[in-house]
Write a protein that binds this DNA or RNA. Sequence first.
RNA 1: GGCGCCGUACCCAAGUGGUUAAGGGAGAGGUUUGCAAAACCUCCAUUCACCGGUUCGAAUCCGGUCGGCGCCUCCA
Length: 508
Amino acid sequence: MPAPLRLYNTLSRTIEPVDPIEPGQLRIYVCGMTVYDHCHVGHARAMIVYDTLVRYLRHRGWTVTFVRNFTDIDDKIIQRAAAEGTTPEEVAERFIDSFHRDMDGLGLVRPDMEPRVSGTIDEIVAMIGRILDAGHAYVNQGTVWFDVASYPEYGALSGQRPDELRSDDPDKGKRHSADFALWKAARPDEPSWPSPWGSGRPGWHIECSAMCAATLGQEIDIHGGGLDLVFPHHENEIAQSQCSHGGQRFVRHWMHNGLLTAGAGTKAGGRAHRDAEAEQVDQKMGKSKNNAFVIHQALELVPAEAIRLYYLQTHYRSPLPWSDDSLLESLAMLARLYEAREQAEQMGGSEPLPKVVEAIGAEARTVVELARALPERIDRAMDEDFNTAMALGHAFELARAINRLGNQKQARRRGGPIAAEALAALSYLGPTLGLLQQGTEAFHDEVATKRLAALGLSREAVQSLVDDRQHARQQKDWAKADALRGQLEQMNISLMDTPKGPVWRVKL
RNA sequence: GGCGCCGUACCCAAGUGGUUAAGGGAGAGGUUUGCAAAACCUCCAUUCACCGGUUCGAAUCCGGUCGGCGCCUCCA
């Protein structure tokens, strides 16, 4: 049996055990993208949160079926196609490709299914038919409206009551301003499909209900998405799904990730003036707010795992401010983990563990204790509402202990058996959090490539200064060596003299 | 107007009834070093926006005040 997991359920507003429909199995549906533009780092947060969840659940023994859709029929896609003089299909296809490139770049697992609205039209039409038959919808001039008043449970997820909503809709033929379109009557120059109510296309919310049922069945275990989807999108999904399935419960566990915010003043430590320009407050990131930072740009600055760490440092339900400075800070944190691992990798010796521990003493014991405890501590944090931040905190405690041990000459020579324990523990970060999955060299190389590009420097330029300094040092021309070091420092390159020769790194 | 979330050190951030309030970054001092860098050590919130209340005991529960954010139009 897989390990039990407790998660916050938006429906009950409490942390509850995940209670699967079938023992050991979880059917998870996550709202994906409307593909009318490139994804920004706010979308990346949602994608990374659910990717981490799925990885972790599988690692803990669950059989997970993970579905994430593409909304490829939508007003904005149609608008963009019209503006570019192309077809909605072409626009959707282009941004689905872009999405896949971004997700691959971020190192995310592919969902088991990625249904598209355009491939689910028959199911959508059938579902709308059942909703009409059940008396929860009405037709007006080729448009089918969901009849909110017919469904007393409406609002259970979001706490909204239809009559209390701000209603600024001009009358479009609805009975109640909270009613929403299941099927939109065809308009000229827009894609449309035949239906019993005339040609048209699906409304915004029905696709997810239909794709969910088509891929996972009438009832699913976990439905995820951004907090901004709670109302109306998910509220409407519940209404549609349950009204078309004879009242059958739709979702057992509703999971919502907090949003990324943008627009805060500088966070650069030490000089956070409170001047007028820094008075901007955090605002949700979004294209309409014109403050979006695209995933592709972020991946040019840092390795994918740094972006991942950025998000996992904060609990998934909290809002998270985005800033370039914080992104670089996350990279520095990631490097700290990689460097601790490297430190462990370099410890030699193959004596029996107890003997080495005995010889080295307290520092060795601490590493062994923390290493052995780490997997369980990570699991405990993750099993209680997916607390990735706490899990990471534990990992950093081990990293510090490894470094402390590595400061001892004797440990570097004989600490191998202790390091093996630490390495095993650190490798636990892969299947659980998706971190430390690169080789040490590959990591340093990627960091150097991306950071040098960001600084406008070339490896050759750096290397030649490093070489010059090395010559100066060999001639004990300390003044010249220090001058060259200073020059590198100015370029944001720090130089480390190691027993194996000088090693340089871009300062993080 | 309605619904909901949040306010923890210089910054980011975990903790949500009970021994010393995780972790990261910045800062100060030290160890180490030709000098450095990295790393390590020490210091850096007797205190969790504010005010009341419940309790033997609260950052954690309840009420109020102030401040911020999200949703109610498309949104991860």
